[in-house]
Amino acid sequence: MDLFALAFYAFAILIVGCAAIMVFSKNIIHSAFALMFTLGGLAVFYALLYAGFVAVTQLLVYVGGILVLILFGVMLTTQGYFDKVQTRTVNLLPATIFAAIIGILLIFVYLSTDWTLNPLEDGEVTLTGLGELLLTDFMLPFQVTGVLLLLAIIGAVLMAARTRPPLQASQPAPKAGPESQKE
């Protein structure tokens, strides 16, 4: 077994294991961190396939960006900062049906695919070609995506920006806080 195979199987176990944790964990934060390992492991797979750029993009976008966003979302929207963030199973029936359909689909795809393995081509620089394609053939989609993302950012800023109720300095001495009333 060469090093590639070793890495492949090690990371395959990691990905599947973390994906399972992500799905079955009761703690939503644990799920989020498990997702990080799943996404990171996928990046390793890309790297093993000599798709360096895709691997790095996977890391940067999913782990560095989207995951941080998910964590933020989970941490900031739950009730209380330190309550154990629990998930529970809802919509059991629709979910089961949906999962079954997806499962059947995947099995179908797996069975119907003609699994011929192409030998890996080492050391091919994909980056230049990628860049050229983006700036020639796919110029329009590339730019449209950019504009779309920009709009999304502006929209998000508009939604998040809120006027704070003015806090006045030198207002009368504040009443005892909730903690002191409790005592």
């Binding site: 934060i29 961190f33 990080m36 990171g40 790297a47 360096g52 750029f53 790095v56 993009t57 890391l59 940067l60 782990v63 560095g64 960006g65 995951l67 941080v68 964590l71 941490m75 330190f82 620089v125 994909t126 980056l127």
Partner: peptide, 27 residues
């Protein structure tokens, strides 16, 4: 790797995830 610089930027972003992890887990 032909995307060296890009890779460094990407992998260091893991650092912020780990710090969030540390900060949250500390309670």
């Amino acid at each position: 790797i032909d995307v060296g610089v890009f890779y460094i930027v990407a992998i260091t972003s893991l650092l912020s995830v780990s710090i969030i992890m540390a900060g949250w887990a500390s309670n």
